[in-house]
Lab assay of single mutants.
Amino acid sequence: MTYKLILNGKTLKGETTTEAVDAATAEKVFKQYANDNGSDGEWTYDDATKTFTVTE
């Protein structure tokens, strides 16, 4: 399945997607991506749209 990440950071904004077997796997990928790019904030997940959002 395709999962989407929306970044609403102070310095990093945008979207990216990943293919993953489940939401937990996608979350690990996205959290590593956000960490690698210095983005940290409040995470939410919408199962209906398969979208993670991180807001700083």
Rank of each mutant, 00 (worst) to 15 (best):
T55K: 06
K50Y: 08
L7E: 01
F30G: 00
A26M: 01
T44D: 07
A24P: 07
K31I: 07
Y3L: 02
N8S: 09
K28A: 13
W43E: 00
D46V: 04
D40R: 12
A20K: 02
D22F: 02
L12Y: 15
T55C: 06
S39I: 15
Y3G: 02
G38A: 07
T18P: 01
W43C: 01
D47Q: 09
V21N: 09
L7N: 01
Q32D: 06
D22N: 08
D40S: 13
G41N: 06
D47I: 08
V21C: 12
T17N: 05
W43A: 01
G9N: 06
N8L: 14
A20M: 02
A24D: 08
D47Y: 08
K31A: 05
L12N: 10
T49L: 06
E19D: 09
A20L: 01
E19R: 13
K10Y: 09
L12A: 10
V29L: 10
K13W: 11
D36P: 04
T51L: 03
K4G: 03
A26D: 00
L7V: 08
A24W: 09
T49P: 01
F30V: 00
D36W: 10
A48S: 11
F30E: 00
E56I: 12
V54W: 11
G41D: 04
A20Y: 02
G41V: 05
D22V: 02
T44Q: 08
A34R: 03
L5C: 08
D22H: 03
T2R: 10
Y33S: 01
A24C: 13
G38T: 05
N35H: 14
E56F: 14
L7I: 14
E15C: 15
K10G: 10
K50W: 05
A48M: 11
A26R: 00
A20Q: 06
K50S: 05
T53D: 01
G41R: 04
F30N: 00
G9Y: 10
L5A: 02
E56L: 12
K50P: 00
V29H: 10
E19K: 13
T51P: 01
T44N: 07
F52K: 00
T25A: 14
T16L: 15
T25E: 13
Y45C: 00
A23R: 13
D46I: 03
G38M: 12
D22R: 01
T49E: 05
W43H: 01
D40M: 13
D22T: 04
E27M: 14
S39N: 11
W43S: 01
E42D: 11
N35T: 13
T17C: 11
D22L: 03
V29S: 05
K13Y: 11
K28C: 08
D36H: 08
N35V: 14
A48D: 10
A23H: 08
Y45P: 00
T2P: 04
N35Y: 14
V54I: 12
G9L: 15
T49R: 06
T55E: 06
K10W: 10
W43D: 01
E42H: 11
T55N: 09
